[in-house]
Design a protein around this nucleic acid. Structure first.
Lengths: 203, 203
DNA sequence: AACAAAACTGGAACGTGTTTCTAATTATGC
DNA sequence: GCATAATTAGAAACACGTTCCAGTTTTGTT
């Protein structure tokens, strides 16, 4: 195993390889943004990234790996961006609602991209465990950070906090899937998240 | 188990058509039970159900429709079976935990089948809205029934109850996906559900 | 600089979901 | 009982994910 290690794009291979990897992920984003899951066709990704199909498969062993990696990169960036600010809101519920709504708004601005990444995530099996773990950790990190209002006191995050964050992450994911697949509107999704957060975080 | 149910599959076409439909769904179950999502190949389903490929597509416009329909049938049966009994447990949390664990155990007994049905459900888009709605309603019905201990007093189910049931259904679904895709063990899934239920239903 | 190993390219080929087409069969109305 | 419409069978063809291979280029070692 050469690729697919842990955090993301670093420390893997030569400059040319890092560049290829970046071109591939960029092409994936572009195609996904324009046409969603179905438009991310491996031949198209390879062509747009200017690599051969075989090379694409050397970097990402399947379409699902490719898309979940892209999702992981996006979540990591979001987590870093959110975790270096202070989260507004007086209660845990307010703050969590704030960040989750913010994320939802961001994703709703790129519906096709979101659809592509979410479908891939839902379809992934255990061979994509590493990439999925990145996403799960980012999500948990975002929620626990919001629960604590942005103060970076690591010691104050308890096991219970993590459990709560995981449950909220689950609900958020289900709601996201419902929205992505056209089964509920953005407003319904927001209301549902509101309900769930107030149920779970009764300050 | 021939008549007297009337939940979904009836009143559609002639006896021969109902029989074909049943043969198709039975073949789907068999193939899914034996080999999971990948083994449910449309050509194989058609052959085993003794219909032509074109006919299969006339009855179910895609593999996803086929599998989600199968899931819907299974959930409906489960809901009917559970809702006619009284649910043991002293608190809402106990009772909900009881039924969800029971369902989980049932599904874990047929892991391949569960994998096939769950993957299809997660991958479905809005064109499968009807079939998905059946699943969602069954799930909500099962949970609200458990919350109320099995007493069939319809008026006692409030909007809040339904909202709670939906959130629990979301968590259950996410946990199920994690288990199905090999990202968590059965024990972890059970523990996670336990956590979520006690977080949300603090009697 | 010479060589070996690894990576890359270009393209063919395979498997499976889906579509399409025509002839045979079955159901329906008069 | 028959004409007509709808349904089904059967098979070919297409689309896209994936695999494979032969030849070429890049990278790393001595």
């Amino acid at each position: 195993m050469t690729i697919a290690n842990s955090t993301s794009t670093d420390d893997l291979g030569s400059a040319a390889q890092r560049d290829r990897r970046k071109r591939i992920l960029d092409a994936t984003y572009e195609l996904a943004t324009a046409g969603g899951f179905d438009a991310v066709q491996m031949r198209a990704v390879a062509e747009q990234a200017d690599v051969a199909l075989g090379t694409l498969y050397r970097y990402f062993p399947s379409k699902i790996h490719l898309l979940v990696s892209a999702l992981g990169r996006q979540f990591e960036e979001t987590a870093v961006r959110l975790n270096e600010r202070e989260i507004p809101g007086d209660t845990q519920a307010d703050r969590v609602l704030y960040v989750l709504k913010r994320m939802a708004r961001g994703m709703q601005g790129d519906p096709k991209l979101t659809e592509a990444l979410t479908r891939a995530f839902m379809f992934a099996d255990s061979s994509v465990a590493n990439e999925i773990h990145v996403v799960g950790m980012s999500m948990t990190s975002i929620v626990t950070h919001a629960m604590h209002g942005g103060v970076p006191v690591e010691g104050s995050i308890t096991d219970e906090d993590v459990a709560v964050a995981r449950v909220l992450g689950d609900v958020w994911l289900s709601a996201l899937v419902a929205w992505v697949t056209g089964r509920s509107t953005a407003a319904e999704t927001a209301a549902h998240m509101d309900t769930a957060i107030h149920l779970i975080l009764r300050d």
